[in-house]
Write a protein that binds this DNA or RNA. Sequence first.
DNA 1: TTGAAAGCGCTAACAC
DNA 2: GTGTTAGCGCTTTCAA
Lengths: 330, 330
Amino acid sequence: MKLTINEIAEMAQVAKSTVSKALNGQKGVSQETRQRILNIAKQVNFQPNFAAKALAQKKSNIIGFVLPHEAGFSLSGFYWAGVVTAAAEEVSKRGNNLMIISPLENEEGHILEIQDTIRSNSLDGLIIGAEQLDTKTLVSIMAEEIPFVFIGQNSTLQHYCVDVNNREGSDKLVTQMIKNGFKKIGCITGPEDYQYTRERVEGFNDAMKRAGLDSSRIMHTSYYEEDARKTTLKMIEENPDIDALYITAGGEFTLNIFETLRFSGISPKKLGLGVFDDSRIFDFLDFSVTTAKQPLNQIGAMATQLLFEQISGHTPEEKINLLPVEIILR
Amino acid sequence: MKLTINEIAEMAQVAKSTVSKALNGQKGVSQETRQRILNIAKQVNFQPNFAAKALAQKKSNIIGFVLPHEAGFSLSGFYWAGVVTAAAEEVSKRGNNLMIISPLENEEGHILEIQDTIRSNSLDGLIIGAEQLDTKTLVSIMAEEIPFVFIGQNSTLQHYCVDVNNREGSDKLVTQMIKNGFKKIGCITGPEDYQYTRERVEGFNDAMKRAGLDSSRIMHTSYYEEDARKTTLKMIEENPDIDALYITAGGEFTLNIFETLRFSGISPKKLGLGVFDDSRIFDFLDFSVTTAKQPLNQIGAMATQLLFEQISGHTPEEKINLLPVEIILR
DNA sequence: TTGAAAGCGCTAACAC
DNA sequence: GTGTTAGCGCTTTCAA
């Protein structure tokens, strides 16, 4: 049977409130009794019941991480795996725990409401993958009055967020591609309703126009495999003269495009390639890829910091925190 | 302010115990009152407080996933990212939540006790990355009398687990390499005290001996980058005649070895390569790699199933569940 | 079928 | 400095 604070109190011959104070490092307990209680607790390996504490304090010490639900955006993608790992570590350091909230599809392919989870879980805060959060869910989160931060920016709601400097980073990346000698660059990009997509496209435009190049070869697509493949084919069919391809997102999306290129007889070797998202793996490819590397650890860590600032009642200074990307040449 | 069961009771003009029964689908409530309560609850978007429920029921509906702490074994590795994603999904389907428990290193590089988290969290069950779980932690988990399953096998304790068939899979992979024409195969492998390492080495031995080949070129190393690099160098220095390399683990470990090979002037192209762990990325390398692909989704899903069987009081039929690997030729 | 009441293990006023 | 007491929001007997 698990020990409770009552047993500890009995063993130490004090009231349970005294035990509570001693254990939580509050004042109002003599040095002597405190030590005695602490010793006993340690000896019997006492650990306060989490649920009881949460109930009494109305504070669970649990942070929820709401993953976006999207093809290629699961934990097995490069991006979220890195960010979640960093967040988990940062959350642990603060004595809290990270709960994964991944929206589920039901039989009909509808995304199940994650609201219930959020609402019932008495979570202390939320880190939310911002992009494809629908307005309905957003509204219900706000109704909870629970602190949250976005990773990436949400088109509907401006709120505390951490993201990379998409436009500038994209500009830099494309500028680098131009420096590498490419002039006719096609751009395959994600859904237009995601803010970062639009920003990265803007960066593409900025760079191309500054160099006096044609920036009209842009195609939007969803991240689903089939769409990505179709769009890739369309791109090379309608623009047989392109000498480079800029892909504004990484992970499986990029791999699907690479594969399509290869299968359609176009060796990626003949094409300049730029990807907004790095992976160490690109070092070993049989063609070279220029990338914008996002500081995944920093993103996860900073989001966590921002969240805890809010939880502790402070108002974070910056609402929108943009981290720089690093251009990786290969 | 959040609504409680009391408010609902008041609105429905019944006792809160009746509300509780109605909401939880228990019998002892007339069809009529039940409907009335349910309607109200739905209308006001009522969601029971999670902590209170957990406290009253001594059941939290939270599953903990204990990640191994090891270089290259964070969520950003291929393996765990895949397994955790699958587990998270399976857990959600059952109306539970997944909590990430990642052991932390403190300043001195010691691994902090994850026991506290486990003990205090009133978790309903644990999915544990088995390999490098130290005995002390293991003992304290057992003392909690909380259901758990291993992913991978633990050398110290035989318990419910799901894993791949390491020996057989390794054998198959090496046999395939031999079929590909390689005869002098070196084997770089992980720490000897991990069971799967030993099993994969056994598989290597099986295959080599069956083919009448020399299976003595085996080197163990930790997964830390520096060690991996040193061992790789040692392997090629002491065995300049090898025509292939078999690496018994994937992720960053493999990448470090690849990189070392390249930097030391040995093009991986000249070497047959086999890796126990697949990644889609290997399709795009400038050298070819034969791999054993582990069914990550299945592993995560099956572990979750096994855990819930235990939680519901059933005794799973098979204690040790070995899934087959798939050999991928490139 | 319904309701009253006790209790889950803890915290936090407030007395003493 | 210490103990008493009253909750936190829910479940669960047990009477009515």
